[in-house]
């Protein structure tokens, strides 16, 4: 009697173990990404619906951190694919030979602007995100803050302590702001501009979307962020305007590239293939107005109309090559704001 019970329990346990192992049999694909967390769930669901044998494991952090992590980990990295990370960063990874060149099926139909120029691209763009200001109408009225229309407006002392922007060392958005100012104004002028801007900044944030979220909550009335976040929050009912400063807008491409040292290249390639499909591009378009596959993009609600035209002629190669130097200088100048006081 007792023995048979034991056997039953053992059989049950074996069965459960077996089930667990079947679940384990899925390929775990480790994806390093900087895409906004709330979007990731949708991508995972859409991809895994058709690829049930692959389990996407997101390692999500801000662009700067993902980049630094990859640069430090090099060949030891746990990443199989870098996905949804600034092209500037992927260029740096390509430079140190971490990326595997691969042409995803259907890559030819993508807009060439979004692709690595090599015959077999090492990185493939997905969509572009564009700098913007988030301006809280309600708080602005309370504090008598005029609506800025240009970057230069932000130097007005009236904004002192009311601005918030992402730290370019950790945030991709922060870096594209800085690199675009340099491309618009020239490097020396840009530093001058930032010196002034620094006087008005309340805090620097870790992530690129946080300034807009803070603006939406009125914590700081004006956030230097990116257009998609502003549009999304406005659609949710936040009392903000999404402003495209008239001098021009920095932007970067979210792109993906397969890691050379990956042991799951087959799965990585399948994810890469999926990432250029129309289906994926439709999801990209949910937030971002500019996507790699032409003809897919639909206007995004509350997205600043003029933004498209204001996108600067971004020199990714220059940005990637100078990224380390610029960030070091930035850290020296503003990294310890409290020290200056």
């Amino acid at each position: 009697m007792k023995l048979s019970n034991c056997i039953k329990v053992l059989m049950g346990a074996t069965f459960m173990l077996g089930c667990a192992q079947m679940a384990e049999a899925k390929t775990k694909l480790t994806v390093y990404t900087a895409i906004e967390p709330e979007e990731l769930h949708g991508f995972k669901q859409a991809f895994e619906k058709e690829n049930s044998d692959i389990d996407l494991q997101w390692v999500r952090d801000s662009t700067g951190i993902i980049t630094a992590k990859l640069l430090a980990e090099k060949d030891n990295t746990k990443a199989d694919i870098v996905w949804g990370v600034a092209a500037t960063s992927l260029l740096m990874l390509k430079d140190i030979n971490m990326l595997e060149a691969y042409s995803p099926k259907g890559v030819d139909s993508l807009n060439k602007k979004f692709l690595d120029k090599d015959a077999t691209p090492s990185w493939v763009g997905q969509r572009a995100w564009v700098a913007s200001l988030c301006y809280n109408i309600y708080e602005a009225k309370k504090h008598n803050l005029p609506q800025p229309t240009s970057w230069a407006d932000l130097l007005d002392p009236v904004y002192k302590g009311h601005l918030v922007m992402p730290n370019p060392a950790s945030s991709g958005t922060g870096f594209l702001d800085v690199s675009s100012w340099m491309q618009i104004m020239g490097e020396d002028k840009a530093w001058e501009f930032m010196d002034g801007l620094h006087e008005n900044i309340g805090v620097y944030t870790h992530s690129g979307s946080k300034p807009c979220k803070m603006a939406a909550k009125g914590e700081f009335p004006i956030g230097i962020s990116f257009a998609y976040k502003g549009a999304q929050l406005k659609s949710k009912g936040a009392p903000i305007e999404v402003i495209a400063p008239k001098e021009g807008l920095g932007w970067d491409v979210e792109a993906f590239g397969i890691i050379k040292s990956s042991e799951n290249k087959e799965a990585a390639k399948r994810f890469a293939d999926w990432s250029v499909t129309k289906e994926a591009n439709v999801i990209y378009n949910k937030g971002y107005a500019v996507v790699a596959l032409d003809g897919v993009a639909q206007p995004v609600k509350n997205y600043p109309e003029e933004a498209m035209g204001l996108m600067i002629d971004n020199d990714f190669l220059w940005a990637a090559a100078n990224r380390t130097r610029i960030l070091k200088e930035w850290e020296t100048r503003y990294g310890t704001k409290s020290e200056a006081k």
């Binding site: 967390p37 870790h206 992530s207 979220k213 803070m214």
Partner: peptide, 9 residues
């Protein structure tokens, strides 16, 4: 920590 980092307080 992460949610606070991206401003989802």
């Amino acid at each position: 920590l992460n949610m606070d980092d991206v401003g989802d307080q």
